[in-house]
Amino acid sequence: MTRAAIIVCWVMAIGLALFLIAPLLVIAAASFSPTPVFDLPLTGASTRWYGKIGRLDGFWPSLLLSLEIALFSTAISLVCGTLAAIAIARGKLPGANVFATALVSPLMMPGLVLGIALLQGFRAVGFTAPWATLLVAHLVITLPYVARTMISGLARFDFTLIEAARTLGCTYPGSVLRVMVPALAPSFLIAGIFSFLASFDNYPVSIFLADVRTKTLPIRMLQYIEEAPDPTLAALSTLILAGTVILLFVSDRVVGLHRMAGTSD
């Protein structure tokens, strides 16, 4: 590549990164606004909006609900998704590819369609308990992330390792635990994080299944915006953002972000 082309590429890359990050910086700045109406340039800094987060109407139950749903759906998806991925990568099932595509297909489906479909489906079979329907719906959301990550993780896994462990004195389950699980630990971590985040910030599916008493955090946040758009919401968003950044930073230390982005193994 010529020098000019490299410069153009760098300018494009930096521009795109700014475009992606700038709104996040604005919301972080807004959360420290001293006045209820956010205005640039800032005339000072205040953390009072952070103190108001906990007093938002229905905040704690919604946070708890979102955490519960995200943790449970991630845990169940990790187990089921890994088993399904083993079946696809290992078992010589006829139509394994079709099954793999079907498993990952909710990723490509608009959340809105998925939400309506699940609502209608659950109604049709008389399954209406809000907490349980939310959990099942979020399984549909999180399972593809786990399955996709584990299928590619297993594709690189040498199953001879399990045989080696068995000949060295391990039982079959013991070999899976002592060799396969540690060797796939990075994949588990990546799958878990993506699954957790996908569930935690899901709005379009949850909105169809929530009721007055069972509202996930994203639904609650949209409600706040409609009722009282002050910087409290910006403060909450900033906290969620900070939590995500810490999560990603820790996983980068452990396994490397390039693996999470899928750009290399």
Binding site: T160, E163, A164, R166, T167, G169, Y172, G174, V179, A185
Partner: peptide, 20 residues
Amino acid sequence: VPPHKRNVGVVFQSYALFPH
């Protein structure tokens, strides 16, 4: 007898060393 109780040693073509 299952492999873990046979007391055999196997050197595999791919070596099958534990990467972790």
